[in-house]
């Protein structure tokens, strides 16, 4: 599903060039649940953005679902992103002026899904994340855990093959964090590939494999004891 070769990303300002990723080669197969760990500034988020087609690499190759995407334009990447990739952010990133229902509906709107189908699918996603009872509330009326469940519902509503989660439990207490991790696990068990950036070794436990990044390099890959199909 994801195959990168010598992926690099450098940020340039007038005087300084910062290398965020330096020759990263990874391979993630469909159905995998992969954690990415490493200290602050090691390039985790940059990698996630590139994998999520939100950003383009400076160098190297990235094949997503069999398509070389490293050289695509923003417009082409946006097209490919739609419906294929779901995002869960550390700070939830729900839109304040939209209700729970409307937030979850958003990806379907951009996909041009019909109203009746939207209703059905948003309903299903909300049921799945057990937040249906709050569908007419605004984000600021929800607890952090509830907000993140909405964000997960939003990430899955379009049935993406890949979900990218950037420290999904970073802003949550342990109880709520656990709930979200269980939710992600369930999604993974239902067949969704998940790549999750995290600081928490406990969260990483939920995944099949952990990639450790340091200064833009992959340093180790730990396989969990759980088995998974390649």
């Amino acid at each position: 599903m994801i195959k990168t070769e010598s992926l690099s990303k450098a940020y340039r300002t007038d005087e300084v060039e910062t290398t965020a990723l330096n020759g990263v080669s990874i391979h993630i197969t469909p159905g995998e649940f992969v954690s990415v760990m490493g200290p602050s500034g090691c390039g985790k988020s940059t990698m996630l953005n590139i994998l999520g087609l939100l950003d383009s690499p400076s160098d190297g190759s990235y094949v997503f679902n069999g398509t070389e995407v490293a050289t695509l334009s923003e417009r082409q990447r946006a097209q490919l992103r739609k419906g294929n990739i779901g995002f869960v952010f550390q700070s939830f990133n729900l839109i304040d002026e939209l209700t729970v229902y409307e937030n979850v509906e958003l990806p379907l709107l951009y996909l041009g899904v019909s109203a009746t189908e939207r209703k059905e699918r948003v309903g299903a996603a909300l049921e799945r994340t057990q937040i249906m009872h709050r569908k007419d509330h605004f984000p600021q009326q929800l607890s952090g855990g509830q907000q993140q469940r909405v964000a997960v519902a939003r990430a899955v509503v379009a049935n993406p093959a890949l979900i990218l989660a950037d420290e999904p439990t970073g802003n949550l207490d342990s109880t709520n964090g656990e709930q979200v991790m269980k939710l992600l696990t369930e999604l993974n068990e239902a067949g969704t590939t998940i790549v999750m950036v995290t600081h928490s070794p406990a969260d990483a436990e939920y995944s099949h494999r952990t990639i450790h990044l340091f200064d833009g390099h992959v340093v180790t890959e730990n396989f969990m004891s759980k088995t998974y199909a390649v």
């Binding site: 992103r81 419906g83 995002f87 990133n93 951009y110 939003r154």
Partner: peptide, 16 residues
């Protein structure tokens, strides 16, 4: 900015 970023991540193009 954040809202626009989210919308783009969720599939909104420049035109939207």
């Amino acid at each position: 900015a954040e809202e626009i970023g989210v919308r783009k991540a969720l599939g909104a193009g420049r035109w939207e």
